[in-house]
Design a binder for these strands. Structure first.
Lengths: 244, 244
DNA sequence: AAGTGGTCTAGACCACTGA
DNA sequence: CAGTGGTCTAGACCACTTG
C-alpha cells in the first residue's frame, strides 16, 4: 500500500492522521474487517500505509473515541460489535427510576411495506415513490409494556427483511446481515398525550402524558438508515442524559 | 516547580499526563487562572512541571475534550468561559422545532431560603438541617412562557446570593462571583401532566403533557452544586440529544 | 518575525495479555 | 516469552495569529 498524499491545495489542509482515519473507516464500511475482528497492529498498519506508528495511533485513538473500535492493551484493536451491552450503553438511554438499565424485550405487532410519506422521505433522504419497511412493536421491561415503537427503513437498503425473524436487537441485525453499522443517532424528545392506538398498546388511557422520542440513526458514512418513533411510558422510567 | 512523582505502588498506575491534568484542574478550581485568561504556553508549563511538551499537550488536549479549556492555534490555551454561547451549546438542549436555538429570557417569581428536603439533601449531598436557596422562575422564548424552573442551591456555597440581582445566565454568576465552575450535568427526563401551579405559570390547563427535566449540576471537583427542576412546554420545542 | 498550538516522526521503555 | 497497546521524550517542521 502506498503512501497517502496531502492535498493542501484546495480544501485547506487535511492532516495525515485524518486521512488514515478516513481510510480505515472506509475499510470498515466495506467490511474488510468484520465486527469483533482484530485490526492489524499499529506497526503493521504504519508499515502498510507508509506513515509512522504515532500517526496510526492518533487515527485509532480518534476512532476509539467515536466508539468505532475498541482498543485493549496487550491484545489489540477490534472492530466494535453491536452486541446488546454496547447498544444498551451507547444508544439506549431509558433507565428504571431505581435500578440498573436493562434491555427491554420486544414483540412485533406488524411489519409492512409502503411508499415513504413526506416525513420519512425528508428524514431518510429518499426520492418520491421510494418504499419503506415499517415495523411496529411493543417493548416491555419486567413484563410491563412501556414503549410503543414504529420503525421505518428504506426498503432498498434492507432486501428480504420482511422474510426474516425480527430480533430484539435490530442494530445487530443491520450489522450482521446487511453490513450496515449504526454510528450515530440524533433524538428529538417531546412530551405529548398518548394517541388512542398507543394508549391501547401500552394499556393506559388516551391522553396520558408520554415521552415521544423521534430518532434518526446514521451509518458510518453518514447515510440515514433508520427512523424510529418511540412512545414511552415514563411512570417508572426516565431518559438519562449526561452532559459535559 | 518540581517534578511530580509517579505513585505506581498502591493505586495501580497514574500516567504522568493524568497527574499534570489533575494539577492543572486544581489550579482552575483554586482560581489561579481566571475564566477567559490564557494559560502559560505548553513549553512554559513543561518547563515549570519538569515534563516534556508532549505530556503537557496530552493533558491539555484531554482538558479541551472536557470543555474545560479552549485551544486556539497561534494564540494560546484559554480557560473556558461560561458565556451564553457556550452554555447554549453545552448545556441547553431545548431547541425550537424549526429554527436556531436561542437563549430564553427569564423572570424570577420568587427567591427564598429554607431547610433542604430529603430529595435535595440526597442530591446535593447535604447534612440534615442544611439550608438551601430556592429560586423559582419562568423562562420565555419569543415572549411565550415555555419553562417553569425551580432551582435549589446549597446556601453555604452561595453567601449573600439573596441580595443579588439574579441574572439570566446563572452559571456565569456562579463562576464570576463564587469561583464555581459547572463542569458536568446529569439530566433525567420524564413526561408528566402539568401541576396546577406550573400550568398557571405556563398558561395551559393542568394535566397538559409537559417535559420534566431534573438536572443535577456538578463543579470541577465533582461537588454537586445545583439542582434544577424544569417543567417544559414542548408544543413547539424539543429536547435534542445526539448520541455517538 | 516571533510565538503559539498542530502535526509528524523516531525511539525507548512500561503495562498487559496469552501462549 | 513475544507481541500488543500505552506512555514519555526529543526534535523538526507546519499553520495560524499578532505585532
Amino acid at each position: 500500500m502506498t503512501r497517502i498524499l496531502d492535498q493542501t491545495e484546495v480544501l485547506g489542509f487535511r492532516p495525515l492522521y485524518r486521512q488514515v482515519r478516513d481510510r480505515l473507516i472506509r475499510n470498515l464500511v466495506d467490511g474488510v474487517w468484520a465486527p469483533g475482528e482484530a485490526l492489524p497492529s499499529e506497526m503493521q498498519l504504519a508499515a502498510d500505509l507508509g506513515v509512522s506508528q504515532g500517526t496510526v495511533r492518533k487515527a485509532l485513538d480518534a476512532m476509539a473515541a467515536e466508539n468505532l473500535v475498541v482498543r485493549r492493551q496487550g491484545r489489540g484493536t477490534f472492530v466494535a460489535r453491536h452486541d446488546e451491552e454496547r447498544i444498551l450503553f451507547q444508544f439506549f438511554k431509558l433507565v428504571p427510576d431505581s435500578g440498573v438499565p436493562s434491555f427491554p424485550d420486544s414483540r412485533v405487532l406488524s411489519l409492512s411495506q409502503g411508499r415513504a410519506d413526506a416525513n420519512e422521505r425528508s428524514l431518510l433522504a429518499l426520492t418520491p415513490g421510494s418504499k419503506v419497511i415499517r415495523i411496529k412493536r411493543v417493548r416491555s421491561i419486567e413484563d410491563r409494556p412501556v414503549i410503543a415503537e414504529t420503525i421505518s427503513l428504506p426498503a432498498a437498503l434492507f432486501p428480504d427483511l420482511a422474510g426474516m425473524a425480527v430480533p430484539n436487537n435490530l442494530y445487530g441485525l443491520y450489522a450482521m446481515h446487511y453490513g450496515i453499522t449504526i454510528a450515530n443517532t440524533q433524538e428529538k424528545l417531546k412530551a405529548v398525550g398518548a394517541s388512542p392506538d398507543d394508549a391501547a398498546i401500552l394499556g393506559v388511557t388516551p391522553g396520558t402524558p408520554v415521552l415521544r422520542i423521534d430518532r434518526l440513526a446514521l451509518a458510518l458514512d453518514k447515510t440515514p438508515v433508520e427512523r424510529r418513533l418511540s412512545i414511552c411510558l415514563t411512570q417508572d422510567l426516565h431518559y438519562l442524559s449526561d452532559l459535559s
